[in-house]
Amino acid sequence: TPSSSDVQLTEEAVRRYLIRKPMTTKDLLKKFQTKRTGLSSEQTVNVLAQILKRLNPERKNVNDKMHFYLTE
């Protein structure tokens, strides 16, 4: 059988990660790697950007890098 996506890039999935701990955009991209989601690089960037704009997470700098996070 062809390998199907075992990870889904959804608003709920992103929300769960950002509630757990602050993450950079790169951290998030690692959680939703294209080989896991079956999306293209461009789709991943576009969808993740839309989700983050909707969630409008808090931001803070840790080690000079911008991290997003959410509180419940």
Binding site: T24, T25, K26, L29, K30, S41, T44, A49, K53, R59
Partner: peptide, 20 residues
Amino acid sequence: SSSEADEMAAALDLELNDFM
């Protein structure tokens, strides 16, 4: 590859900078 990851992160940061 890590360079593709870097490119994606850069593209995403750019998208978000425009917005935020």
